[in-house]
Design a protein around this nucleic acid. Structure first.
Lengths: 251, 251
DNA sequence: CCAAAAGTGTTTTTCCTACACCCATGC
DNA sequence: GCATGGGTGTAGGAAAAACACTTTTGG
């Protein structure tokens, strides 16, 4: 009640964790890194990687550390942003645990290395992780669904799609990111024009890539721009070529 | 280090608070509700209203309760959404306190009533609260700056601007919301067309409002739509009529 | 009548969409 | 050659921007 003052000593002890939603593209499908829980509660169930925020650690710092521990990757190499805080009273049966969820996006990452914390971590197609009968631990299903929607939205207004591509990449690689995450097919020529016209989205390396089939593709690297202006809106879908979208409850 | 498992008992006790950034428009200026701290630390400094999340309370629930306590208003009447979590180790000298910030938007709200928790709460122009020499407590300056940027962004893609208008309102009232928060002048006729063309943004009441000057304005109420598609982008500024923007470090 | 704000109409420009077509490579 | 994906050209349309103009009120 004395909240307007908020100067009493800290009260109502709780634990604070970070949980990571690490997305990558594997075999033209959106995958999320999940670990299998070895202890109660939810023993044997899959969960998002995460852990406690340490006493002298910032939230971002804890997320970076967990990312390094789980994937062996430097967080500065991939896109990392806060999704939001989740703190429903019943979300952890052990007591009051608030978690701060982070969204991480990276190019086709290596299968987690044995010997690390992430020995039991696996890449799971998001479609399957959100499907019926999968049963993610805690409220991680809701967090994952929010993350998918956030990622879709970020593709519209920012250049984060390049985080999924290893440099150098072709325009079609970038297009595939949009198609897989949005679950729709895009017109290759219009997509290309849009990307090239947006200053700072990509810049040519001058190289080309040997073709599996067809003409070799010119290669690009990230151009440094963060925002997409004007945005690349989801509406521009090609009729009749709709991909299967990851089903998520309406935004 | 055992973070991949994350099944140990809760550790590293911390306190969790919610802080509210409550925005309203007063005299064609964006204002934020601030309280004066009566206790250490930061005694005498201004701070965002907020308080501890109680043991059996959700984060959203705590935000709604604080909002009611601070403003006497029902949170369902205004727009309320989570901004994010802030948890740098040094942000509260008393110990480990993580705060979850919320953004609340409402029409010109009454001056807080004496006798409540908010007796010492006042509306402060955001420009002044962020200006030099104001010195908000804790990291509330950073939270406020983030809130301003978030609000600006929300105006582009959603219909939240109506949250600042008391119904029924004129199109020009709505336009003023955009102009004040974005700090730019908009073309009245183009703005009008855009709003009326967007299905569900506003609907006519049939009434008109007596004019202070000029022709009486037709009145509208909210139309129920949440998203703006296509968005109302900030670029559409009228040259030469730039308003003073609230200065905030680049997005 | 004048000032001021509401509201309409119209032209220009910019961007998106659809789709036809050419290019470069492997087989 | 021909299949396959990369890449260019272009016509049509939707929407935003710029701005001239009309309407309705109070003085």
């Amino acid at each position: 009640m004395n909240s307007a003052v908020a100067s009493d000593l800290p009260r109502y002890p709780a634990s604070v964790t970070v949980d990571l939603v690490i997305f990558t593209l594997r075999e033209d499908d959106l995958h999320v890194l999940l670990i299998e829980r070895g202890n109660e509660p939810y023993r044997g169930a899959s969960a998002l990687p995460g852990g406690y925020v340490r006493p002298r650690e910032s939230l971002d710092g804890a997320a970076l550390r967990e990312l390094r521990e789980e994937t062996g990757l430097d967080g500065r190499a991939l896109h990392l942003e806060q999704l939001g805080a989740y703190g429903d009273p019943g979300r952890d049966p052990r007591g009051r645990v608030i978690t701060v969820a982070y969204l991480a996006l990276g190019p086709d990452l290596p299968v987690p290395v044995a010997g690390t914390d992430a020995a039991d971590a696996v890449w799971v197609p998001v479609r399957r992780a959100l499907g019926p009968g999968f049963g993610l631990a805690f409220d991680h299903g809701a967090i994952l669904a929010d993350a998918v929607e956030k990622a879709r939205e970020r593709l519209e207004y920012t250049t984060v799609a390049v985080s999924f591509c290893r440099e150098p990449f072709a325009i079609s690689d970038l297009r595939r990111v949009y198609e897989v995450i949005w679950g729709i097919a895009l017109d290759p020529s219009n997509f290309r024009r849009k990307v090239l016209k947006t200053a700072g989205f990509v810049e040519p390396t001058g190289e080309r890539r040997a073709a599996e089939a067809g003409r070799p593709a010119a290669l690009y690297r990230f151009g440094g721009a963060r925002d997409l202006y004007p945005p690349l809106l989801r509406s521009g879908e090609v009729a009749g070529r709709t991909r299967e979208a990851v089903p998520v409850g309406g935004a």
